[in-house]
Nucleic acid binder design. Structure first.
Length: 503
DNA sequence: ATCGGCTCGCGCAA
DNA sequence: TGCGCGAAGCCGAT
């Protein structure tokens, strides 16, 4: 093989068999890294196709029956698919887009595709229903089946250790990440790609599962989405478009004096638009972490030689980059990959019981404390609490599919305070976040939600009702610390009776 | 405005 | 074995 191969540490063998040289094609089942550039899974599939001298088929599907399927999620994924289709059209790769019309109709499709395949490659994503889907495919297919980790700068399964604190993970990264910064997936693997072309998919597949024509979406997104049995009450976010080019546009916007240059100082200010906003595209794999890393470290002159040699776990002076860059890299690498570490290695990552012992104990001790306010899931959903700042945060979530990082913490802390039990708080946070957030159903969402309940944190006195020694936050203090007046005004279209009179 | 205390557990120096 | 210190806080004292 001419190109540098995909690191073995990123490849997990689900079905260990030799490739079937009698197959008609190599199959890449694209489920998480939904992009045609800087994608180790695609590189791996191309490696196999080259080695075997076979065509490559990319099967990019979206199911209908999974939990929280909505116009919002469908639109974002479809917009990415349309772009992928254009990229593959100029290549010898056969791209097979498929949107499941009704839950269950896709049953058997992958198996049929795999019957003619030499080998199947897919994406190793550690969260939501994807791990179970891979496991299930592993029981059904009868062909070599590999999943590839293209999530982070570090392979997420390189260690067995689950890290309970960011500082420990940071220290681990400081020791181990060096070599992984020197390699990347192929930036444009389709460029000048030479592979045999497939004349067509087998008839039995084309007849039962015809490729989805996505042009209907381009003519009328709403009408197109209306044909799917998904949650139409969660509308698409029109100003955040799915797909790699929108992602790269946002990345270019962010890596600038006016955003990254102010990131360090103002990232906690909800009214200042200095956060990267990249998480939706990172979540759906429309954007590669390697592209982000290179853009950000290229903002000011920097090279890997500047990295400190001593692994102290400290945030300061690790990368040897500008403070703005250091601050962002700690989010992008330490915190992002910490979440992937948890999901990949802790099967109970979404279960209440996976919280640290001290947090479980203190929350349990206070579970019978009197609650001054209690709201139903419906009241939370509508942003109908007594607290205008909370309602605004919820309003932003429903309207834009995101909450400002800083207010997201307050949002969660108050849900803990205003529900009947910490388990119910967890359930409501997961429900609201996964339903409305474009970057929900992602390891980082679970980090944020579980942080509210003590994960990655430490006890803070004094012991209070409900919270115990879980870190406590109040809306009043938040409003004192950061400017929120315009934020509240901007997102208070909800139903709370108070906000109109307060501001 | 700034400071310490609240409280736990991990890595590392000793 | 002890020490320092940690994603973002809060509160009361100065």
């Amino acid at each position: 093989m001419s190109k540098k191969s995909v690191p073995a540490e990123r490849i997990r063998l689900v079905i260990d068999r030799p490739a079937n040289t009698q197959g008609d094609y190599v199959l890449y089942w694209m489920i998480a890294n939904r992009r045609t550039r800087s994608n180790y899974s695609l590189d791996r599939a191309i490696e196999w196709a080259r080695l075997l001298g076979k065509p490559l088929v990319v099967f990019e599907a979206l199911r209908a029956g999974y939990r929280w399927a909505s116009d919002r999620i469908h639109a974002f994924v479809i917009e990415g698919m349309i772009e992928n289709g254009k990229a593959f059209a100029d290549s010898p790769v056969t791209w097979f887009p498929w949107l499941e019309p009704r839950p269950g109709e896709g049953k058997g499709l992958l198996k049929e595709l795999a019957r003619n395949a030499c080998a199947v490659v897919s994406d190793d994503f550690p969260c939501f229903f994807l791990p179970q889907m891979i496991e299930s495919a592993g029981r059904q297919l009868q062909v070599r089946f590999e999943v590839v980790d293209s999530n982070g700068m570090m392979p997420m399964r390189l260690t067995d250790r689950v890290f309970a604190r960011a500082v420990d993970f940071r220290r681990y990264l400081q020791k181990e990440i060096g070599p992984w910064l020197e390699q990347r997936p192929v930036e444009q693997p389709l460029k000048n790609l030479k592979l045999p072309r497939l004349q067509g998919l087998p008839d039995r597949i084309a007849e039962k599962w015809p490729m989805t024509d996505l042009s209907g979406y381009q003519r009328s997104p709403e009408a197109f989405l209306a044909t799917f049995p998904i949650d139409h009450s969660v509308p698409r976010v029109e100003h955040i478009r799915g797909g790699s080019s929108a992602a790269r546009k946002q990345l270019a916007r962010f890596v600038s004096d006016s955003m990254l240059g102010r990131y360090h100082e103002e990232r906690n200010q909800p009214e200042q638009e200095v956060a990267s906003g990249l998480s939706p595209w990172l979540h759906f794999g429309h954007l590669s972490i390697h592209d982000v890393f290179e853009s950000v470290t290229g903002w000011k002159p920097w090279s890997t030689e500047k990295i400190a040699s001593k692994a102290t776990g400290s945030k300061e002076g690790w990368w040897g980059a500008a403070p703005e860059v250091e601050g962002f890299l700690d989010e992008l690498i330490t915190w992002r990959e910490l979440g992937y570490n948890m999901c990949a290695l802790e099967p109970r990552y979404d279960q209440y019981g996976s919280l640290p012992e001290w947090a479980l104990a203190t929350l349990d001790k206070h579970r019978r404390d009197r609650r001054e306010w209690l709201y139903s899931l419906d009241e939370f959903t509508r942003g109908a609490t007594h607290d205008p700042l909370w309602n605004a945060a919820q309003g932003q979530l429903v309207e834009e599919g995101r909450i400002h990082n800083y207010l997201r913490m307050l949002w969660g802390k108050k849900i803990l305070e205003w529900t009947e039990s910490p388990e119910q708080a967890l359930e409501f946070m997961i429900e609201l976040n996964n339903r409305y957030a474009l970057d929900g159903r992602n390891p980082n969402s679970y980090s944020g939600i579980f942080w509210v309940l003590g994960r990655y944190d430490r006890p803070w006195g004094p012991e209070r009702p409900i919270y115990g020694t879980i870190r406590y936050m109040t809306s009043d203090n938040t409003a004192r610390k950061v400017r929120v007046k315009d934020y509240i005004r901007r997102y208070s279209k909800g139903e709370s009776g108070e906000q109109g009179t307060l501001f």
